[in-house]
Nucleic acid binder design. Structure first.
Lengths: 325, 325
DNA sequence: GTGAAAGCGCTAACAC
DNA sequence: GTGTTAGCGCTTTCAC
């Protein structure tokens, strides 16, 4: 094998491969060349078995979340993770956590199949994974709701702030009769964005009574919009907790013969196809999804390496002005 | 360990775990109970090393394709794959194939890190993986273009037929001055869908001269539409090679003051958010993306198991009539 | 700094 | 049908 060609022992080859500091330059060169020549690639399983590391990171997506898979948000976060991991020696394993048998996923993670996990969470019950964090390095994408979440590693956007910014933008542009289409109130982003809307509206002394929740989907947004309209309360400003819902809301407004931004100004969150290609294009608060993915991966890799990393990383959001206000 | 508790040898435990046929019912029961009691989970790396199987399947996404990640198509296919694999013992590993260093991915696959691979392809150069197929079980999602593709395992939709169906629908509804917004002509779906449009139009004795290509994105669709309009040729029927491009085309038509379907009838491909929520909702040919993913996974698993599977599987498409014709 | 030897936890012949 | 015996291909003490 390589050792023979390089004229050293297998141990030395191993040292070179793992870039141990205690190897002569000569040995490094010889081994490197031998590796090159033989096209040698170390066997993962053997390394894993001997070193008791798997060099594998799990990306856990709760099944209910997987249904939201069409959400560009996930695709983009995943892309960020995969890209960040690509130059490292870690491999990404996709795990769709079955709701029917949550233990299966937990066992898999517990069993030492991976060195760490990224949990892309959306729902309250993702908390169940928080306990795992005592056994295994885990980083959450999006704050998990619940009590034990306090000491979890999290990469998130400041949803309260994002919503506040979007709402304030409406207020700053003279809108005074506000409404919001909130997200599901059992998901952190849903809760936080409603909070942000309330903060801004209250801060301006406005009524915060006109609230309807949707499920983050276009259809849910349309339905919520119709419920708001059927209240018979005239509104002139609307904050929608996601661009997908906003696109549905636009449909409902159009049905009702209301113009945007003429009759109702709209701001939302997410800079995706939905906000970019809506009619009119939507003023929105962008969350850097791909960066969030990269940060998740980076945080986890450092965590596994035993480095000290901060528990909560907030990636910055940006207001993008378009034509819906 | 388990063997002791069950009162058998480690071999027997192994046999039970791998559901070998040559074990007594008694032994199975005893071992199963012992496993349960001890919460034993076999170590993947060790199994892998000893059995020379990795129980891992790679999902390879070319980097240029990854940019299209926001495309609901991919999310949905991936979901289908992951869901299909979930109850099996296989694990899915996500590989973003770097364009800068394509060898890296190839080496990874060659090195025996996986038992097989699914290549989600979009581009001509994915062909480079076709050679790998001699070494490793590989299934392509979407026909890879190129010469060597002949003997590859492929799960695809019949894009020619889908386009033909969509175009014929326009013709059957009395449209005679047709145009098409084609996809990129270096991708199989782009090529095939243009072919299908030509087939149908020629079959009806219509002109096939009005063709503009886009990049499958809404923006690309809008630009292509504007180019068509600027030709000054009056059209009354348009087939767009993807719903995303169609949504862009709608924007351009609206700008030009043309009504759909009044002035121009439109059909497209993909039953996704874009076709469902366009104004008006688009008549489209649906490709069963999630099923395609599941079929990809199933095909690969069988291939790895040494079963005989057909080289090309075509998943069925369905015409969905909506309001754009 | 380097080699020798001892496993990592499992599967797979091989005898029984 | 079951136990025994060898490894799978690496990393890692431990001497040197």
């Amino acid at each position: 094998m390589v050792a023979a060609l390089a004229g050293v022992s297998r141990s030395t080859v191993s040292r070179v491969v793992n870039s141990s500091p205690k190897v002569t330059q000569d040995a490094i060169v010889a081994v490197t060349r031998a590796i090159e020549e033989l096209g040698y690639v170390p066997n993962r399983a053997a390394r894993s078995l001997a070193s008791r590391r798997t060099l594998t990171i799990a990306l856990v997506i709760p099944e209910n979340t997987a249904r939201f898979f069409a959400d560009p948000y996930f695709s983009s976060v995943i892309q960020g993770i995969a890209t960040q991991l690509s130059p490292t020696e870690y491999t990404l394993t996709l795990l769709i956590a079955s709701e029917a048998d949550p233990e299966k996923t937990r066992r898999y993670l517990q069993a030492g199949n991976v060195d760490g996990a990224i949990i892309l969470s959306h729902h309250t019950d993702d908390l169940s994974y928080a306990q795992l964090a005592h056994t295994l390095p885990i980083v959450f994408g999006g704050r998990p709701t619940g009590d034990e979440a306090g000491d979890a590693y999290v990469v998130d956007v400041d949803n309260v702030d994002a919503a506040r910014t979007a709402t304030q933008y409406l207020i700053d542009h003279g809108r005074t009769r506000l409404a919001t289409i909130a997200g599901p109130q059992n998901m952190a982003p849903g809760i936080d964005r409603l909070q942000g809307w309330r903060d801004a509206a209250r801060g301006a002394g406005l009524d915060v009574g006109v609230v309807e929740a949707g499920d983050f989907s276009p259809a849910g947004g349309a339905e919520a919009m119709r419920r708001i309209l059927s209240r018979g309360v005239a509104i002139d400003g609307l904050f929608v907790a996601s661009a997908q819902m906003a696109s549905g809301a636009l449909t409902a407004l159009r049905e009702a013969g209301l113009g945007v931004p003429g009759d109702v100004a709209i701001t939302t969150i997410d800079d995706d196809y939905f906000s970019q290609n809506a009619m009119p294009p939507l003023t929105t608060v962008e969350q850097p999804t791909s960066l969030q993915g990269a940060t998740l991966a980076d945080t986890l890799v450092r965590l596994i390496a035993g480095e000290h990393v901060q528990r909560v990383t907030i990636v910055p959001t940006t207001l993008i002005e378009r034509e819906s206000v």
